[in-house]
Amino acid sequence: MKYNQYADGFSPAPTCLKNCLLAFLTGGAICETGHLIRAAVMSAGADAETAGMWTTVALICTAQLITGLGWYNTLGRIGGAGAAVPITGFANSVVSPALEYKKEGIILGTGAKIFSLSGPVLAVGFSVSAAAGILYKLLGLL
C-alpha cells in the first residue's frame, strides 16, 4: 500500500492532545453528573441499587432530550469520545437514527431504525453476558 502512505503524508495529524483533553473533561463531567444524581437520590432515601437505576434513566432521558433539541451533535463534535462513550452516547445513538428516519414512517422508519446503531451494542452486550453465564456454569464456578 505505497499510495496509502504517500497520501497519509498530506492528511493533517489529529490534534490528539486537545481531543483527549476535551474527551476527558466531557466524559468526566458526564460521570460526575451521574455521581451527583446518584448521591441526591440516595440522600432521598433510596438504596444504592435503586439510585443507580434512576441515575441511568435520568442520564439517558436528558441526553435524548438534548438530542431532540439538536445540541448533542455539538457536544459530540467538541467532546468526541467523551460524549460517545458514556451511557448518554448510547442514548444518543438510540434516538438519533429514530429521529432521522421519522419521515419514513413511525413503524419501519423510527421503529426499525431506533436500533440501527444501538442494536449492535445490545447484540454484543447480551451475547457476552450470556457467554459469561454459560462459562461460569460449565466451569462450576456458580
Binding site: G27, G28, G80, A81, A84
Partner: peptide, 22 residues
C-alpha cells in the same frame, strides 16, 4: 470520591478518543 469519579470516567473516554484518532 468526586475526583475519582471524574478521573476514571474521563480516563475511559480518553481511551475511546485515542481509538477514534489513531
Amino acid at each position: 470520591e468526586m475526583i475519582r469519579v471524574f478521573a476514571v470516567g474521563g480516563g475511559i473516554c480518553v481511551i475511546g478518543q485515542l481509538l477514534l484518532d489513531f
